[in-house]
């Protein structure tokens, strides 16, 4: 790892100014060792950043810490009854927050088992959303893959058992954030602030960038901008949510598949609103629109769950080693829908 200078931002504007370039852009130029001007970047928990630096996928001349910024590490109720989560809230604090546990249990669940307690004590929600993909070709300096500014995706015809089954024609990464699966399902808004003090609010689902829009980044964070908060809209009374994930192992592992379901049902158990989001399925959290359409207006029962799960996979395009994700997702979606419905009537 090349040495760098260190600073601590005291204001959000200073912090945004310190981010001269996004990590994604900084990684597009091959790392240099001969003294060329490198990036000035910002760091919160920095788990992913340190990993990128150690693997020489990223070099930085200056790193500015966000940990001194006031107000970035708190969780508050919003006026409309939603929740505002500072971007620097650690995953550990998020998972044990009474507010989150009471109102958004699926989010607590998604973060409570991410990585390890050691990581969760340091990693922040903002960093979790902005972390770069775990694709092993992307993570090895030897491969100058499409996402790093190279010519092609090595995974599409390579080792792709943990890769995408949707939207994988250009680049087959899956989005690495499990929290994002739930946050998209909940309709979360991300708030960014720039060096001039202006705030930008955008739906997380729109903030995340699929490959055909720009294969070099997973989100639309800009240079001289930092992520400051994630806001969750208020829920209708009786909204139920479930997050299910399945890793190859249950200890310290990335999910092979994860599913977030958010429902609003009417008195007859008829579905008024449904979000079915798949994680570890596509370069961004994948909204299973066909499944949502099937659920809408249906009474949620075994048959509806089965139909929705089946429909969710209809347009999947598995690669040669990840076809198993289809039955796996189908199972998780069906179980998650039924669990959410059961919760409702528990």
């Amino acid at each position: 790892m090349r040495n760098f200078t260190w600073g601590q931002a005291q204001t959000v504007m200073d912090a945004a100014a310190a981010a001269s370039v996004t990590v994604a852009d900084a990684m597009l130029s091959p790392p240099n060792t001969n003294g060329q001007a490198g990036a000035s970047i910002v760091k919160a928990g920095g788990i992913d950043l340190l990993d990128l630096l150690k693997e020489k996928l990223l070099t930085a001349d200056r790193i500015t810490s966000l940990k001194e910024l006031p107000g970035l590490d708190v969780i508050t109720r919003t006026e409309d009854g939603g929740l505002r989560i500072g971007a620097a809230v650690t995953l550990a604090n998020l998972a044990r927050s009474p507010l989150v546990l009471r109102h958004y249990p699926a989010l607590a669940n998604a973060t409570a088992h991410a990585a390890s307690p050691q990581i969760r004590n340091v990693a922040t929600l903002g960093g979790n959303l902005l972390q770069r993909p775990r694709c092993w070709y992307f993570r090895a300096a030897e491969y100058r893959c499409l996402r790093k500014g190279g010519g092609h995706c090595f995974a599409i015809h390579g080792e792709n058992q943990y890769h995408a089954i949707f939207d994988n024609q250009l680049c087959a990464i899956v989005h690495p954030s499990t929290a994002a699966t739930v946050l998209v399902a909940l309709g979360a808004i991300v708030e960014c602030a720039d060096a001039m003090g202006a705030a930008r609010r955008v739906r997380l689902e729109d903030f995340l960038v699929p490959p055909d829009e720009d294969v070099h980044r997973e989100n639309s964070l800009r240079a001289q901008e930092i992520l400051t908060a994630i806001e969750l809209p208020a829920l209708n009374p009786g909204t139920r949510m479930v997050h299910l994930k399945q890793g190859e192992t249950d200890s310290f592992d990335w999910p092979l598949a994860d599913v977030a379901i958010v429902f609003d049902l009417d008195a007859e158990r008829r579905c008024k609103r449904a979000a079915v989001i798949l994680g570890a399925a596509a370069p961004v959290p994948h909204r299973a629109k066909a499944a949502e359409a099937i659920l809408l207006g249906r009474i949620i029962d075994e048959e509806a769950a089965k139909d929705a799960a089946h429909a969710a996979l209809a347009d999947a395009t598995p690669l040669h080693k990840n076809g198993y994700k289809l039955p796996l997702f189908e199972t998780l979606i069906r179980r998650a829908i039924l669990r959410a419905a059961a919760d409702l009537h528990a």
Binding site: R134, W136, Y137, A140, E142, Y143, F154, H157, G158, E159, Y162, E248, T249, D250, S251, F252, D253
Partner: peptide, 22 residues
């Protein structure tokens, strides 16, 4: 990797192992 001959999981993250919960 069949095309480059490099091990793609030379770590304790993507090289999957039994750990406490297994």
């Amino acid at each position: 990797d069949q095309h480059t001959g490099r091990m793609v999981n030379p770590d304790l993250e993507q090289y999957k192992l039994a750990r406490p919960r297994e």
